[in-house]
Structure formats: structure tokens, C-alpha cells
Design a protein around this nucleic acid. Structure first.
Lengths: 211, 211
DNA sequence: GGAATTGTTGACCATGCGGTCAAACTGGCG
DNA sequence: CGCCAGTTTGACCGCATGGTCAACAATTCC
């Protein structure tokens, strides 16, 4: 009650709070990305985080609250590569760089990719707002940039939204369908993504180069 | 016991058996594709199939048996478009036709695509054998065909396995990530796939045309 | 019709799971 | 130390879920 300075409803987080919340989010990403929301259990996440179930529920009030937290914590990072497409850059260089960033995400954080894949396949019950809001607006913004480049004759004329879909699909494929890729090639994930980078550069840059 | 002709352990299926098994597989595809294995319940599938849970379990002995059955029933159809790539055909025509067939599958049977996506994201616990067996061999066979075409200078030199990944990823994207596609465009699925067809034709055919 | 086979289901069981709670323990600070 | 907010957990509750079973209903075949 007797808070001196700021918002009395929000107390500063203790060291233990910060540490445990981080442990929980890490564990939740591991479990939710592999099992999906309904397939995951609080017990499993607690075990992964090295604490008891009631203790985990001391930090997050419900399974859905954990899920939302880990989705939110991951969403920004997912959108970032797209945000960084620079209207002032050289079109094909920007697209190549975007491919790199997305592939790098598939290599470094495949769990984040699978987390979203799971959520979206289910019909995106919890992130529909972000899809029709933030994502849609960002896509429109970048689509306009691409259309500008096309109008200037600096890249081949294609529907920019479908181009973005194709980039998402091809890059995230190496995270979401990792076991399939590895079953077909017999390479580890790193090697597969190296091959992917060479291939996708060729595919997109040849197709998008102005005539 | 007293079977006259063939395998005494396998009796011919009755009309009711055939009808009900079909109803169950249809319902199971609906539910498993939307919820994944762990997220689905037998009760839900039984309800969708219009019968009681014990009745459903009279035809399939466990949840996993239903799941395997629906996976098997869908797998062949999933592989078929790839099988139909004709070594005697014109390379770019064959690839265009393959794209068409895969996109058509995303339009006509998105549930099958999502069923596999769910399974593979989870690490393909039940179809790993098919991935490293049937699929891998089929990919090797078709990769050899593509490499032959490349050696003959009839299409651009690219790693054929990654080309197949890219085709799978881009076409199945419209089924697996349907809600995202619809959130970003504001078109219905049919219209989105029409746009996809035009775009993917351009993307792959421009990239793969021999210089 | 009637027997045998096939099909159907309400009731039930055991387990798993999300979530609660009271009681105990701990860390930081005067 | 001694206090107290903050932290931890064993035990528990209620409900959902996979699966069983015995009894009942419908078909099939003579």
C-alpha cells in the first residue's frame, strides 16, 4: 500500500523474479514450440524450467498467460527482419539481405519459427490481431516500397505480397520442417541452411533481376 | 473360423464397416489437421463423425490407430504430384505442372497439408520412416531427373533438392498458413491461390529458365 | 421366424492435467 | 538477530480424456 514514488500497483521486480521469469519463458518456448499449446503441459514446462508447478504458477497465473508471454516475447524478433528492409537501399541487395536475416533466424532460433507455425496452423486464435494489425500494416508498407522499386524498373514486376509469402515460406521451411529436410538430405541443419542460402539467392535474385 | 477361400484372419468388410470407417477418417482428418495429435480428442472426432466414442473405438482400437490410418490414407495423395514429374517432358513445363498440382492440393485439400505440417513440426514421430524411406528415395529419383535436365542445359543449374523444398514450402504455405495469408491480403483463399499461381510461375520459371 | 454375427452405447474406471491453498521456508534489511 | 515480503511446495480438487465393458439393438443368413 504505502508506495513512496511510482505506480503502487507495479512493484519493481526482484532478482529472483527476473531470473525465474526468464527461465520460464525459455522453458515455455522449448515446450510450446515442440508440442503446440494444447499438447504442452504446465508440469512439463515447470520440469524444463527446473521448478515445481505451483512455483511456476506463482509467476504466471495460467498456461495461457505463459503462452501469450512467450508469443509476445518472440513476435518482435520475428518481425524485425522485415522492418529492416530499407527503402533507400538497392532492391536486390535489400532482398538478399532480407533472405539472409530470415535464414539466420531459422538457423539460430528455429523454435520461435515453430512456435508461430503451430499457432498459425491452428488458426492463430491468439495472434489474429497482430496478423490483421501490425503484420498487415507492415506488409502494406513494404509492399509499397517494392512496388516503387518495380515502377522504377529496378526489379522485375511481381506481386510484392506474394513475394513476401514466398520468402517467409522458403526460409522458415528450414526451421519448421527441419526433420523432413534432414531426412531428405542427410546433412545437419547448419549444412542444409548453407545450401539453402546459395539456392535461395539464385532463385530470388535471378527471378527478380530486371530484364 | 470356417472361411472357405482366402486369409481366415481377415474377413471381408461389411457395408456398415466401410461407411463408418470412411466417416471416421474424414472426421479424423478434420480434427487432427486443426488440432494436432495431442490437441485432438476421441470424443471430438466421434462427434464430428456422428457416432459415440465407444462406437468409434469399435472400429479403431486407439487414438493413435486412427491417426496412423488417416496419415497413411493421406500420404499417397501427398506424394503423387511429385511422382508425376515426367523425365520425358519439357523441364519448365514439368515444373509448371508440378507447381499447379501442388497449389491445387493446397486449394482442394488444405487439411491434408496441415495434417502433415503438424506431424513434421513435432518431429515426425510417426512418419519418420516414410520420410527417410519412400520420400527420400523419390526425391533422389527426381533430383537425378532434374540434374539430367541441368546437364543438358535445359534449365538453370540449381541444387534440385532445395528446389523441391522451395516448391513444397511456397505451395503448402497457402494451406498451412491460410489464416495468415488471408489476414494480410483480404482475399478469400481461392483468390489468394490464384494470385499465388501467377506469382510462383514467374518466380520459378524466370529463375529456372536456361540463360 | 430365429440364431448368430455385427453394430451401438451408457456407465464406468484410471490417469493426466490445470489450477488452488495453506503451510513452510528464504533472503534481504534495519 | 528478528522481521516480513517474497518464494516454494506437497497435498489436494475437479474436470477432461483415453479406453473398457456388459448389455442391448440391428443385420444377416438360414
Amino acid at each position: 500500500m504505502t508506495e513512496s514514488a511510482p505506480d503502487p500497483a507495479v512493484r519493481a521486480k526482484t532478482r529472483i523474479q527476473r531470473e525465474n521469469e526468464e527461465k520460464i519463458l525459455e522453458a515455455a518456448l522449448e515446450v510450446f514450440s515442440a508440442e503446440g499449446f494444447r499438447g504442452s503441459t504446465i508440469d512439463r514446462i515447470a520440469q524444463e524450467a527446473g521448478m515445481s508447478k505451483p512455483n511456476l504458477l506463482y509467476y504466471f497465473r495460467s498456461k495461457e498467460e505463459i503462452y501469450r508471454a512467450v508469443l509476445d516475447a518472440t513476435l518482435d524478433g520475428w518481425l524485425d527482419p522485415l522492418r529492416r528492409i530499407d527503402p533507400a537501399g538497392e532492391p536486390l541487395d535489400e532482398i538478399r539481405a532480407y533472405l539472409r536475416r530470415k535464414l539466420e533466424m531459422s538457423r539460430e532460433n528455429p523454435r520461435a519459427s515453430r512456435l508461430f507455425a503451430n499457432e498459425v496452423i491452428r488458426g492463430a486464435p491468439l495472434i489474429m490481431e497482430e496478423l490483421t494489425g501490425t503484420l498487415r500494416e507492415l506488409v502494406e508498407e513494404k509492399a509499397a516500397v517494392l512496388e516503387g522499386w518495380i515502377a522504377e524498373g529496378r526489379m522485375a514486376p511481381v506481386e510484392p505480397r506474394h513475394l513476401l509469402f514466398a520468402i517467409w515460406a522458403t526460409t522458415q521451411h528450414y526451421a519448421d520442417f527441419q526433420v523432413q529436410v534432414q531426412a531428405v538430405l542427410s546433412a545437419d541443419e547448419g549444412a542444409a541452411i548453407d545450401g539453402a542460402q546459395a539456392f535461395l539467392d539464385t532463385l530470388f535474385l535471378r527471378a527478380l533481376a530486371p530484364r
